[in-house]
């Protein structure tokens, strides 16, 4: 049975584009247009003995704009075979030109393209694809080779756009809570403390409810606490979370409580009052959150 790879391999050495003469001989008007467009002032191109710029090699043999028969040749056959494999997109990757002699007005060139190789499937940034290497041979009317061009294209299967990662809902950061989330990014669990009466408070706020002081600092929590209450969330589902989702209120050893997630335990292993310790969840590049796991017995 002929595999897909065999069918592709059969193209190696095959003439992809039959030898095709350039529509016009090499001529001064086209050279003039080219060097003007390119801004190339090299006097050799338009001097007493004009020489065509090497970079024009492909230009002499290009097809015109008129429609051509697109159904017949080996090239179309290869394109169809690649499309069958899902390689529907193309990008040119390499072009190595090798010049045998200079081309001058009056030369009537032709080009022929032969497949050298088709690679196995490669992973690329654009998607999985195969490199198709061909050799284009440029000859003059006497069949002398004036240049060769090793031409490589990547025929690829466009990568599925990566599903956009759904992030956890963003905290609304403002002047009153920014310090807490900044500390969390450094994996520090802090609790706001009144700078005057030293009362701890969470969630934080600008003013101490015990003494009305607006001065505050923070203390770093031990990361130990107990399970005060919890919810096993099932519906509705937010795409950033796995369900059932364990959400808890944890009472820290320092006395304040916070809402968090539980990890390292299933719902039926939870009991109100159980000992917990902090673990850091790097939810995404911008958000690190404290979550809590049961304190393992051996650590007592």
């Amino acid at each position: 049975m002929t595999t897909y790879d065999d069918r592709l391999a059969a193209f190696s050495g095959r003439v992809l584009v039959e030898r095709r003469p350039a529509p016009d001989p090499v001529n001064v008007p086209m050279i003039r247009q080219w060097v003007e467009a390119m801004g190339d002032a090299n006097p050799r191109y338009l001097g007493e003995q004009p020489v065509a710029p090497a970079s024009m090699m492909q230009a002499w043999t290009m097809r015109g704009y008129a429609p051509t028969d697109a159904s017949a040749g080996a090239f179309e056959e290869l394109v169809a075979l690649l499309e069958e494999g899902g390689y529907t997109s193309v990008v040119a990757t390499d072009s190595e030109l090798d010049f045998h002699r200079e081309v001058v007005p009056g030369d009537h060139l032709s080009v022929e393209e032969v497949v050298e190789s088709i690679s196995a499937e490669k992973r690329t940034g654009l998607g999985a694809g195969r490199f198709v290497s061909t050799l284009k041979t440029y000859r003059d009317s006497a069949d002398e080779v004036v240049a060769t061009q090793r031409w490589r294209t990547l025929r690829f299967r466009p990568a599925e756009p990566a599903p956009e990662a759904v992030l956890r809902p963003r905290p609304a950061i403002n002047l009153d809570n920014e310090f807490w989330f900044t500390a969390a990014r450094e994996e520090r669990l802090v609790v706001q403390r009144c700078a005057d009466c030293k009362a701890l408070r969470h969630p934080p706020g600008p003013c101490c409810p015990d003494c009305t002081s607006f001065a505050w600092d923070t203390v770093e929590a031990s990361g130990r606490g107990t399970l005060y209450s919890y919810v096993v969330a099932h519906h509705p589902r937010h795409p950033a979370f796995d369900y059932p989702l364990l959400i808890a209120v944890v009472e820290l050893d320092e006395g304040t409580r916070l809402i968090t997630n539980l990890t390292g335990a299933t719902a039926d292993e939870l009991t109100v009052g159980m000992a917990l310790e902090v673990e850091w969840l790097r939810a995404d590049a911008d958000l690190t959150l404290p979550v809590f796991r049961p304190v393992r017995p051996r650590e007592h």
Binding site: P169, P203, S229
Partner: peptide, 24 residues
């Protein structure tokens, strides 16, 4: 900003808010 203490942890619906009280 008050939601900052809830929604990043997936606590975002009235049923969930009440469930936390109910468990206790």
């Amino acid at each position: 900003a008050a939601y900052s203490w809830m929604t990043p942890f997936g606590l975002s619906t009235p049923a969930q808010w009440v469930a936390m009280f109910a468990r206790r």
